[in-house]
């Protein structure tokens, strides 16, 4: 946790510098008319800078008890799988359409994450879930789904 806090503290400090500089370039104050568009960004930058310095100083003064790794290998793998497959499914939407992309995503997740793989569950999920989503969003709520090369 200590190292993680130091790294995030440094990143947040860098972010605050960027926000602050951009705020300054946007005009902070307008004569009699009060704050300009740059005022709140600049204020946010100052607060964020103070807070991230506090965070970093804290890591130097405080003792950390739980030095066990907070990120487990398994957890990061799960994160990569779920986020990665979601992004891929998003990219596939333009190619094969929303319905097929969601079917593929559901089928993949069920197959990949299941403790005991059953082909029937995977196929069932890949077919049934897109139909349910179609009924709720396309039919029920009239959301136009992007169509793909398959015309679905």
């Amino acid at each position: 946790m200590k190292k993680a806090d130091q790294i995030t503290g440094a990143l947040l400090l860098a972010l605050s510098v960027y926000i602050g500089l951009t705020g300054l370039s946007l005009e902070l104050w307008w004569g009699d008319e009060g704050p300009g568009p740059g005022f709140l960004p600049f204020f946010v930058a100052v607060c964020l800078a103070i807070l991230s310095i506090m965070l970093i100083l804290n890591t130097l003064m405080k003792e950390y008890k739980d030095e066990n790794n907070i990120f487990s290998q398994e957890g990061l793998k799960l994160l990569a799988t779920l986020i990665g497959s979601s992004v891929v499914a998003g990219l596939l939407v333009n190619l094969v359409g929303m319905i097929v992309a969601m079917g593929l995503l559901a089928g993949f997740l069920v197959t990949f994450l299941a403790e005991e793989r059953k082909i029937i569950t995977s196929i069932g999920m890949a077919v049934v879930l897109p139909i349910v989503l179609y009924l709720i969003f396309r039919v029920g709520l009239d959301v136009p789904f992007p169509k793909g090369i398959l015309g679905l």
């Binding site: 779920l82 979601s86 969601m102 995503l105 559901a106 997740l109 069920v110 990949f112 994450l113 299941a114 403790e115 569950t121 999920m125 879930l129 897109p130 989503l133």
Partner: peptide, 9 residues
């Protein structure tokens, strides 16, 4: 696994 798929989709 099925739950994850349903919620994410």
């Amino acid at each position: 696994a099925s739950l994850n798929a349903i919620v994410i989709a």
